[in-house]
């Protein structure tokens, strides 16, 4: 029965992929090889869509992969499989922490963990920014420093950063307002067009 098989496959992904949505990718390639539910090309589309639609990337990918294998119920079953190990493990860890949160050793450990958490988020952000704002490939072809930076995107980033930090009436708006504004700017100024 395909639903049971989907659940079991994605349960394994959820158990062994540590660190976030894109960490599920090697496992999805493996499922593709073994089951033929979806192709590598479909996986590439899946990543692009998952990254540009709302929601967690891992869940978006499991929904899409499950849909490819067995329609809408397949997408639901695959996602439920993916989250099952995480929910069980986190509930156990959270209960443990509730009991020991005032313990001085736990406190000291978190004192080290917090800057680590900040650094991991900063470096993940840095990695994706480099892909979109810096066009190394285009620079190699043209050799012109003007082509190295995606100026339109950089300008929008600077404007948004200024608006969201220094303009009193605007900076407390919900993040979704900035997202909608950027979507409109992207459409008006053809942001997807690459100068190649």
């Amino acid at each position: 029965m395909i639903y049971l098989q989907l659940y079991y496959e994605f349960l394994q992904v959820g158990l062994f992929a540590v660190g976030g949505g894109l960490a599920t990718l090697p496992f999805l390639y493996d499922i593709s090889d073994r089951t033929g539910w979806f192709t590598y090309e479909q996986l590439a589309d899946m990543i692009a869509i998952s990254e540009s639609t709302p929601g967690a990337i891992g869940i978006n990918m499991s929904t899409y992969a499950g849909y490819m294998a067995a329609g809408i119920p397949g997408g639901i079953v695959a996602s439920l499989g993916l989250i099952t190990p995480a929910v069980i493990i986190i509930v156990v860890v959270a209960q443990f922490l509730n009991k020991f949160k005032d313990n001085q050793y736990i406190q000291a450990t978190f004192h080290g963990l917090r800057p680590a958490s900040t650094a991991l988020i900063a470096s993940a952000g840095f990695a994706v920014v480099m892909i979109d704002l810096v066009h190394v490939d285009l620079f190699r072809i043209t050799g012109s420093f003007i082509d190295l930076i995606n100026w339109r995107a950089l300008l929008l980033a600077i404007v948004l950063f200024y608006l969201s930090n220094h303009v009193r009436l605007i900076k407390n708006l919900h993040p979704v307002v900035f997202i909608a504004f950027a979507a409109a700017i992207g459409m008006i100024f053809n942001f997807a067009e690459v100068a190649l």
Partner: peptide, 27 residues
Amino acid sequence: QNAFAGIRVSVYVLILNAVIKLWKKSV
């Protein structure tokens, strides 16, 4: 596609803002 390209830029700025807030509390 144009809309998504714009959205990605705003997401970077939002992450940067979040990291600055985290930095103040964690480092």
